[in-house]
């Protein structure tokens, strides 16, 4: 089953390039020859119904889940190379870290794991917390934070090191409307001022339509459509397009 194609030249222009990615959980096929290309410095959203394979794909990028066939590269570097992960930050749907850690300690820990010199920690932790708007809560324990604040700590942990690609899995899940608004603003800021490429798995089509540049729709592990938000017809919403694609696939 392990037929990973290695050594195929990938284009470094793309933040993510996936070719023929297959993944089985037992007899269930989670990814069925998925092909996907994500351009650098864009906000890209991967849409699909529950069980479509969105989270599995995201985890294969990080090597948390082993793909059985196909190839994924990050900025032209195969995900088989551990160095490729140095460019990627991952925020799970429910970011969890040791509740007795403070915000500052958590960010400092991720800096250390990314090889940031200890003497630079204090300054860079402050900078990172400022970007995510958490500098005033730096000394608070994670156990005392709201879901939205915890998500921001998660994002802060992505901004350490030299990460160019941020993978966010259902980042709006569990946030209140204000939390969603703040988080959307943060995502746009990360793209425009920090030059990051942001890949988002989401169910909230209306929000993604407002902030994303490009999108792809997957179902049953297969990519059904990939396009830019601008390519939607006048008067057509992302939700209309998504519904027609998914229903057409039934």
């Amino acid at each position: 089953m392990n037929e990973v194609a290695q050594g195929v030249a990938m284009d470094p222009e793309y933040a993510i390039e996936a070719r023929g990615v297959n993944k089985f959980y037992g007899v269930t096929q989670a990814l069925a020859g998925l092909d996907l290309r994500v351009k650098g410095n864009t906000i890209f959203t991967l849409l699909g119904p529950n069980g479509a394979g969105k989270t599995t794909f995201l985890k294969t990028i990080l090597g948390l889940v082993k793909l059985q066939k196909g190839e994924i590269s990050i900025f032209g570097k195969s995900t088989h190379e551990i160095e490729s992960r140095g460019q990627v930050g991952y925020l799970p749907e429910r970011f969890y870290f040791y509740p007795y850690y403070t915000v500052r300690d958590s960010v400092a820990f991720f800096m250390a794991l990314n090889g940031v010199s200890k003497k630079d920690h204090a300054e860079r932790v402050d900078q990172t917390l400022q970007i995510v708007g958490m500098q005033e809560l730096a000394k608070r324990r994670l156990s005392t934070l709201s879901k939205g604040q915890l998500q921001r700590v998660g994002v802060a942990s992505l901004l350490v090191g030299e990460k160019k690609l941020l993978l966010l899995d259902e980042p709006f899940s569990g946030l209140d409307p204000l939390g969603i608004k703040d988080f959307k603003d943060l995502i746009i800021k990360l793209k425009t001022t920090e030059g990051k490429t942001i890949f988002i798995n989401s169910h909230i089509l209306s929000e993604m339509e407002r902030i994303a540049d490009d999108f792809a729709i997957i179902d049953k592990g297969r990519c059904l459509a990939q396009n830019s938000i601008k390519s939607l017809l006048p008067g057509e919403t992302l939700e209309d397009f998504f519904t027609s694609i998914i229903r057409g696939n039934k």
Partner: peptide, 10 residues
């Protein structure tokens, strides 16, 4: 779930 957050690092 901390393991997946840590192992997502290089």
């Amino acid at each position: 779930g901390v393991a997946s957050v840590i192992m997502a690092q290089p």
